[in-house]
């Protein structure tokens, strides 16, 4: 009798089976891109209307996980497009040889410094800058340089993300290397260490600690204050502008090698650089669009636009990253 009930229960549970649709294009992206807060729902809908075709979106954790998955599937690719890897992943992606080249005619509208691959295997779609965001009610004179962060008045007041486990954390490590060089960055970190309340596993925990008042200074993006202005109507949270310049993060998409939908995929890349996609980026992904078809939203006036931009060559990052992380961990930990 129990068995019958159990069968009935499972029968009911699985009686709802989603219909399978034939898809014309499969896109892998990172999870938050396609969340209801992210740009995904808007831009994918627009594309489906434009191309009169059916997209299949697979949103996978973070960019690292997504890249892992595409490399695992290399022999038998399931994705046509990989949307959302950033500059720190390029070395790995090129080594694994997972992309096929496409030179979109719209590339000419994109600033030269955002185009990082001479072979056009990847196309940039947005970019942003790392920045320290502060609570202006608790910090009256904000830091104006990386050097300022070392001041004793910030003791136990700063929270950053761990470079070993999170992408903004890794970008900050690269930022310090781009400013102080391989000879000097560890010294900087040793001096910074007493000012760090803690290092979190990901952006979420760090930014949560910041908005909940546990810390007045957090490593985030230059565009973060725009969120608070747009949705919370407050200018209390500000991004500090640093004299040394800010580290840049660029996000890219690429067409997966071995795709059977190459034409459609190219159509998507062109769409990605059109106004329908680019205009949706600021208020959903909180990044700068690579092409400004229309003025940025008003809330972006509070987003810091750094005077000088710091980057590291992605090939150098790929070659040296594990060495840097190793020396960093050893200089500061256990």
């Amino acid at each position: 009798m129990y068995l019958k009930k159990l069968i009935l229960f499972f029968g009911l549970l699985f009686s709802f089976v989603p219909f399978a649709f034939a898809t014309d294009l499969t896109i892998y992206t990172y999870d938050s891109f396609n969340s209801e807060w992210g740009p995904g729902p808007t831009v994918f809908k627009r594309f489906q209307e434009q191309c009169q075709c059916k997209l299949k979106i697979v949103a996978l954790g973070d960019a690292g996980l997504m890249l892992n998955r595409v490399i695992l599937e290399k022999a038998n690719p399931k994705a046509d497009i990989l949307l959302g890897i950033n500059d720190s992943h390029l070395g790995k992606a090129f080594e694994a040889d997972i992309f096929t080249s496409y030179q979109s005619p719209l590339l000419t509208k994109i600033p030269q410094h955002l185009q990082m691959d001479a072979q056009y295997r990847i196309t940039p779609f947005d970019y942003g800058f790392m920045a320290f965001v502060y609570d202006s009610e608790k910090i009256k004179s904000p830091p104006q340089s990386l050097e300022d962060l070392l001041a004793p008045r910030y003791q136990n007041k700063i929270v950053i993300e761990d470079p070993r486990t999170s992408s903004p954390g890794l970008s900050f490590l690269h930022w310090t290397i781009s400013v102080y060089g391989e000879e000097g960055y560890l010294d900087y970190w040793k001096k910074l260490s007493p000012n760090l309340l803690t290092i979190t596993s990901g952006w979420s925990a760090a930014y949560g600690m910041f908005t909940k008042g546990e810390t007045p200074l957090v490593l985030s993006y230059a565009t973060s204050p725009a969120y608070h202005l747009e949705y919370e109507k407050t200018e209390r949270y500000q991004a500090a502008v640093f004299a040394e310049g800010h580290y840049q993060q660029v996000e890219f998409a690429g067409i997966v090698k071995g795709t059977k939908k190459e034409k459609r995929a190219q159509e998507f890349i062109d769409f990605m650089l059109s106004a329908a996609f680019q205009n949706a980026i600021p208020l959903t992904n909180w990044m700068f669009p690579v092409i400004e078809y229309q003025p940025l939203p008003d809330s972006f006036r509070i987003a810091a636009r750094p005077a000088s931009v710091k980057t590291l060559d992605f090939d150098r990052v790929y070659q040296q990253n594990s060495k840097w992380l190793k020396s960093w961990t050893r200089a500061l930990g256990n």
């Binding site: 973070d62 690292g64 996980l65 890249l67 892992n68 490399i71 992943h89 790995k92 761990d162 470079p163 070993r164 486990t165 999170s166 992408s167 890794l170 260490s193 760090l196 309340l197 803690t198 290092i199 979190t200 596993s201 990901g202 925990a205 990253n321 594990s322 992380l325 960093w328 961990t329 500061l332 930990g333 256990n334």
Partner: peptide, 30 residues
């Protein structure tokens, strides 16, 4: 993982799980 990093003040303490995550997700060294 998260508790060790966030509540243990990050880099001062490393356990094997953090190392595994770093290798798998950040360095992509499976």
């Amino acid at each position: 993982f998260a508790i060790i990093l966030v509540l243990g003040s990050g880099v001062r303490f490393t356990n094997m799980e953090v190392l595994i995550y770093q290798l798998a997700r950040v360095e992509l060294d499976i």
